[in-house]
Each structure stands twice: as C-alpha cells, then as structure tokens.
C-alpha cells in the first residue's frame, strides 16, 4: 500500500512536466486560433509591417522574424568560430591539467543570467560600436548579436568539445603514425569525425539565440523593421512579447492575442531546431 503510494507520487512528478508542456501548447494554440479569426494567415505571413499597437494596425510577422534572424545570425557568427576554436584547443592542444580547470569554468559562464549580458551590451558594447560607426542607433542589432554570441560561446565550446573528446584516441594515433602534424590530426581527423556533434551544438545555440529575450529587449530596440542593417534598431519576436506584456494590452484584445501568435511561431521554430539537434546528437553517439 505504501509502496503503491510512493510509486504514484513519483510517477505524477515525472508526468507533471509533460502535462504542463501539453497545457502550454494548448493555451498557445487556443489564443492563436482566436488571433487568426481576426487576421488572415496570409496577412500574417506575407504582410511586411508589424504595427499591432498603432492604427492602422498591420499584422505581418516578417519584420519580427527578420529581426530575430538578424540577431541570431550575428550571434552565430561570433559563437561558432570562437566556440569551435576553443573546443579544438581544449580537446586537442591543452594539457589535461588545464582542461580540468577550464571546462567547469566555461560551464559556469553558461549560467550567467542573460540580463547581465543585456546590460553589458547596452552599457559597454553599444558605446564602442557607436564610436566606430557614429550612425549606429543606441539600440541596434549588432550589439545585441555580438553579446548574445559571447553568451553562446561556452555552450558551443562545451558541446563541441564533448563531441571531439568522444573521437577515439586510436584514430589520432593512426593519423600521427602516418606523419600527420597536430593541426592535420585536429582538422582532418578529429573535426570530420566530430562533425555531427559540432553541428548539433550549432543548432542548439541557434535555438537558444532565437528564444533569448533579455539581451534583445534591452539592447536591440523595439522597432519592428524589415532590414538586414545591423546598426539599425530592430525588434525580435521575443522582445515584442515582452513589450506588449509589460504594457497594458487589454485581456482578449487583438494586441493581446497577437502575442500568442508570435509565441506560437517562436515555439515552432525552437521546438523543431531542438528536435533536429537532439536527433543529430543521438546519431553521433551511435557511431563509436
């Protein structure tokens, strides 16, 4: 009887997160459906203006998607090369003693709250950008993107390093025995063998960048714009949600519902990226 009770208790704890997740999806979809009663899917996907808070209101998500894509692109351009290089250093060049210190430190870095990064972007990186490009807006995509990239470096580095470390030593020995230099071993044996793990780390980083909120809300601005100029103020999907929910959009109004529509798109994007990333991670684990 007591065993049974404990089992039920543990099972409900395990299923709670799944049930909550399903609940979130349903509430998202419900409000989103309400939004699409008033705005056509065609307008939502093809209109190039997003002005739900003004009249005349336009509901085209493209500017928000564009803002998110721009910041994400900049972030990945920072995080991918630096993260990969640092992973390669840690896994192939650094002595064991150094790796044992640096790896946990990297993982702690990944735990810094993103508001700190956002503040860092606004008060430190933005002034530097504006001293180089005086035409840059106070709120701009570049600053947010760079700092988001810095935030993602530990994640890319740590996951890529795991993938490289799981390349068996026998392959490195084989290459050394054929007269390969350390660089050749790293680039022609370890990197190709760890590709799927590295790609997975990039995908998970992109997914994280798309969903990141505080940095863009603080530093990237709140002007939805269909532009790829990184010096302009833009707005990402997440930053829009923050803006509306911090304001006083009346419950049940179209502005309120638009948040759910945007959140659904966001959810679909990050979910599919996470699924792809997890599948790749699983595949590379099976190789050796």
């Amino acid at each position: 009887m007591r065993e049974k009770f404990i089992q039920i208790l543990l099972a409900s704890a395990a299923s709670a997160s799944v049930i909550i997740m399903i609940g979130i999806v349903f509430s998202l979809l419900g409000e989103t459906a309400g939004f699409f009663k008033e705005v056509t899917i065609k307008e939502f996907l093809t209109e190039t203006r997003w002005t739900p808070l003004f009249t005349p209101a336009h509901y085209g998500i493209l500017p928000l998607v564009c803002g998110t894509a721009l910041v994400t692109l900049i972030a990945v351009m920072v995080a991918a090369p630096v993260g990969l290089a640092s992973a390669l250093y840690l896994s192939e060049y650094a002595p064991d003693s150094l790796r044992r210190v640096v790896k946990p430190v990297l993982e702690i870095l990944a735990g810094i709250p993103s508001i700190v990064y956002g503040y860092f972007a606004l008060t430190f990186v933005t002034p530097i950008i504006r001293s180089v490009f005086p035409e840059a807006n106070v709120f701009n995509a570049l600053s947010a993107g760079i700092v988001m990239g810095i935030m993602l470096i530990p994640m890319v580095s740590s996951l890529s390093e795991d993938a490289m470390m799981s390349v068996p030593n026998s392959l490195r020995e084989a290459a050394y025995a054929l007269g390969a230099t350390k660089l050749e071993v790293s680039c022609k044996v370890v990197l190709p063998a760890a590709t799927s793990g590295i790609v997975a780390s990039f995908i998970l980083a992109i997914s994280r960048a798309i969903g990141e909120t505080m940095i863009v809300a603080l530093a990237a601005g709140s002007t939805p714009k269909l532009t790829f100029n990184p010096l302009e103020s833009i707005q990402t999907m997440t930053a829009f949600i923050v803006q509306v929910l911090l304001g006083d959009a009346p419950f049940g109004s179209i502005e309120y519902k638009s948040v759910y529509a945007v959140a659904s798109v966001l959810f679909a994007m990050t979910l599919s990226l996470n699924i792809v990333g997890t599948l790749i991670v699983r595949r590379y684990r099976e190789v050796y």
Binding site: S170, E173, A174, A177, L178, A180, T181, K188, P192, A193
Partner: peptide, 24 residues
Amino acid sequence: GMVFQKPNPFPKSIFENVAFGLKI
C-alpha cells in the same frame, strides 16, 4: 609506419583511408 593492436581505420571510405597519408 605503424599498425596498431586494434584495427583503427578512419571513418572514411576505403579509398580515402589509404589515400590519407599520401594527401597530408
């Protein structure tokens, strides 16, 4: 040259395995 205890071909094609040393 050296050959090891456990066969350790690279995760590449048969051709690329033999060509590896030549290429580098």
